[in-house]
Amino acid sequence: MPTAIIADDERLMRDQLRMRLSQAWPELEIVGEAKNGDEAVELVAQLTPDLTFLDIRMPGKTGMEAAREIGNQSHIVFVTAYDQYAVEAFERGAIDYIMKPTEVERLQLTVERLKERLAKPNGAVNDSVTAMLSQLAEKIAAPKPKYLQWIQASIGQDLRMIPVEEILFFRSDEKYTCVQTEKLEALIRKPVRDLAEELDPSLFWQIHRATLVNVNAIEGVTRDIRGRHLVMVKGRPEKLEVSRSFLHLFKQM
Rank of each mutant, 00 (worst) to 15 (best):
L114F: 01
G37D: 02
R209Y: 00
Q135L: 14
N36I: 00
F169S: 04
R14E: 07
P143M: 08
F246K: 11
R113M: 01
V213P: 09
L107Y: 02
D38L: 14
E116L: 12
V79S: 10
A40K: 00
V111C: 09
L195G: 07
I30C: 05
L240Q: 09
I30W: 01
V79C: 15
Q108W: 00
L230V: 03
Y147P: 04
I5P: 06
R18D: 03
L148G: 04
V87D: 02
P2C: 07
R209L: 01
H229E: 11
G93C: 08
V231A: 09
R236H: 10
E88S: 13
E166R: 09
D200C: 09
E10N: 13
K239W: 02
A40G: 05
M232P: 00
G60M: 06
V231F: 04
A119S: 14
E238N: 14
Q206S: 10
V111S: 09
V104A: 13
K100M: 11
R57S: 13
E166I: 00
D83P: 04
A124Q: 04
G37I: 00
Q135E: 14
Y97L: 08
R223Q: 13
T130K: 13
Q108E: 14
T222N: 11
V192E: 03
E165F: 06
R92Y: 04
V192T: 10
L133T: 04
R117Y: 03
A4W: 01
G227W: 04
T48Q: 15
V125N: 03
G93L: 10
D127P: 03
L12R: 15
A153R: 05
V179F: 10
M64K: 10
L249D: 09
Q252P: 04
Y176H: 09
C178T: 12
N72Y: 04
A45W: 04
V221A: 15
I98L: 15
L136E: 12
E241G: 06
Q180M: 11
T52F: 02
F204I: 02
R189E: 08
E241P: 03
F250Q: 13
K61W: 01
S202K: 12
F90T: 09
G93H: 07
E182M: 11
E42T: 11
E69A: 09
R209C: 02
L187M: 08
A124L: 02
Q149H: 10
D173R: 15
N126E: 12
S172D: 12
A210S: 15
A196P: 03
G37F: 00
D127Y: 06
D55I: 08
F78L: 05
E33G: 03
T181S: 15
M132C: 08
L159S: 10
W25Y: 08
N36P: 01
I70D: 01
I56W: 04
P145A: 05
E166P: 01
I76G: 03
S243L: 02
K35C: 05
E238H: 11
I76P: 05
E219R: 15
M13Q: 14
K251E: 08
R106M: 07
D194Y: 08
E112A: 15
N216M: 12
V79P: 04
D83I: 02
F53Q: 08
G235T: 07
D173I: 08
L118R: 14
L136D: 09
P101V: 07
L187T: 01
A66N: 07
